[in-house]
Design a protein around this nucleic acid. Sequence first.
DNA 1: GTCTATATTTTGATAGAC
DNA 2: GTCTATCAAAATATAGAC
Lengths: 189, 189
Amino acid sequence: MKPENRKNEIVKAAAKLFKEKGYSAVTMRDLAKDLGIKASSLYNHISSKQDLLSAIIISLAEEFTAEMETILNSSANSIEKLKRIVSIHVCISSEHSNGMASLNNDWMHLEHQLPYYLKLRSEYEDNFRRIILAGINTGEIKNEQAEVILFSMLSTLRSLYLWIPNKEEVDTASLTNTLSEVLINGIAK
Amino acid sequence: MKPENRKNEIVKAAAKLFKEKGYSAVTMRDLAKDLGIKASSLYNHISSKQDLLSAIIISLAEEFTAEMETILNSSANSIEKLKRIVSIHVCISSEHSNGMASLNNDWMHLEHQLPYYLKLRSEYEDNFRRIILAGINTGEIKNEQAEVILFSMLSTLRSLYLWIPNKEEVDTASLTNTLSEVLINGIAK
DNA sequence: GTCTATATTTTGATAGAC
DNA sequence: GTCTATCAAAATATAGAC
């Protein structure tokens, strides 16, 4: 077993605890106890608590960035692009439900990687906004305030981690369809 | 000046800091420094850090409960009731933007008041769900999965505190209308 | 109402044996 | 790879002077 595997186990356990209580409230002793070892043993695999947070958040942020890039480079129309954004949020949230909690709630506790995270996030939001504005221009999307649409969709998508139980029980394709319908066409008959 | 006033100042400052870094990451020294006093001086006005969290969260949870009661007792149809739910979230979030952060993210750090908070929250969600189901029954609302509709609306409404800058700059009536339109009728033309 | 001084726990992290 | 022992810093909170 490579040391990488043990580190992954630790990161995974950390993400679970960070979701339950938040980064700051989880101690290295809590984490060690969850893994059945002593706190000092953790430091053979990681160099600091901060490293755990970075590992969890940055990999997810980069995954969203990569997926958004693919969508931008596609020839789909704006509504189709929005549906694909819904899809990547459903998929990533169901695969990494615990890590999404840190991405959403504990990013401010990043240290060295904070500027990089903020850059990725603001680029992601800018691209999301451009897709909405393009849809308004082509007449696909209502000319409501684009910022309200962006906020509403992003809020729902970012909260998915709280709602998706775990990947075994989720039909991601079906959830993506229902959620897209609700977000794009509304709920009124 | 009654001691109540000084306590309110402390609670207000605490809510601001809790929003920035979360309850667990804010120390009593941070809070004292923000108020220009020493940490020990805080204890003449409050009995513990935990008290601050309870004061912030429980008063907001009770406010939502009271407003929901009013909506339930009204004779409005389901769509109108949903619009009024949007309205109370916009109003409370613009009045108490900082406190909403604790309500959403730090409720798990409540101690004595945790069961009470959980009761209020689950009753609120039950009432919200019943309004949606009633609307589906009367044909006002599409027969999508009610849980997806509930999740989507609640996620957006709960995130308002992140998005509303401050009450001076927000036209709550206008935001309520735009947000209701987006949530209820969707964004597709 | 705020201060200084301090008690008590808990925290992240290191050193070195096995 | 995990342990015991330990450190240094930081945490919540109290006591008592002013």
